[in-house]
Simulated scan of single mutants.
Amino acid sequence: MTTYSGNCHCGLIKYTITLPGSIYEQTITSCNCSWCARQAALFIYFPKKEAKYFSGEDDRKSYNATLDPARAFKHKFCPQCGSYMGWQSTEPQPAAFLPGFEGINVRMLNDIDFSKLKLKLEDTRSKYGEYEVGKWYEEKEKEGT
């Protein structure tokens, strides 16, 4: 078992996660959905019970996301500095994505050599489509507002 510490940029949110081995032995997910790509997020998934928050757990702000009716979760970020911390399942909703698990943004962990991580691309754009930046504006224009 290996424990890693992490925090947001300003330090409001501080935590540790415990993994079954070294993070360099784990598969780290690089998702290409519109949110994760813009955040440059890299994820490690682990049981929620393996995370211990020392501060800021309840301060985190949420952004609800649903890739499809069967995959709902909340993106979590720091309310002060805006650091993207990762995602959390929307349990107990029936559409909760990976119940009992959390996805931590590996970029928030301390002392990680990113060049040594084993990355796996999660091609979410091909599965669920591309978010169209500016679509909301085009729709408003068509409505004449």
Rank of each mutant, 00 (worst) to 15 (best):
P94Q: 10
F101A: 07
Y131Q: 12
N7A: 13
T90Q: 13
P20V: 07
D68P: 01
E132I: 15
A72L: 08
E50G: 06
A37I: 07
S34M: 04
M85Y: 02
L12S: 07
C81R: 01
Y63P: 06
Q39L: 12
P69V: 07
F54T: 04
G129R: 08
L121D: 12
H75V: 06
G56Y: 08
E132N: 15
S22C: 00
A96I: 03
D59F: 13
K74I: 08
A41W: 01
K116N: 09
E143A: 15
D58Q: 14
K118V: 04
M85N: 01
G100S: 05
Y45R: 13
E130F: 09
C81V: 02
I104H: 01
P20E: 08
R71D: 11
K76Y: 10
P47G: 04
P94T: 11
W136P: 08
M85A: 00
G144F: 01
K127C: 08
K14W: 06
L12W: 05
A37H: 11
R60Q: 15
L117M: 05
I23R: 00
L19V: 00
N105K: 00
Y45V: 12
K127Y: 07
A96Q: 01
E139S: 11
P99E: 05
K140L: 15
K52A: 13
K49V: 12
D68T: 10
P47A: 06
D113T: 10
Y63Q: 11
M108V: 15
D111G: 07
K142T: 13
I44G: 03
S5R: 14
K120N: 14
C81K: 03
R38I: 09
A41L: 04
G6D: 06
F101T: 05
E139V: 13
Y45A: 12
G56T: 10
V106L: 02
N105V: 02
R125D: 09
T27C: 10
Y24W: 03
G103Y: 03
T27Y: 11
S30G: 12
F73V: 07
Y24R: 00
L98K: 14
P20N: 10
Y15I: 02
F54S: 05
Y128V: 10
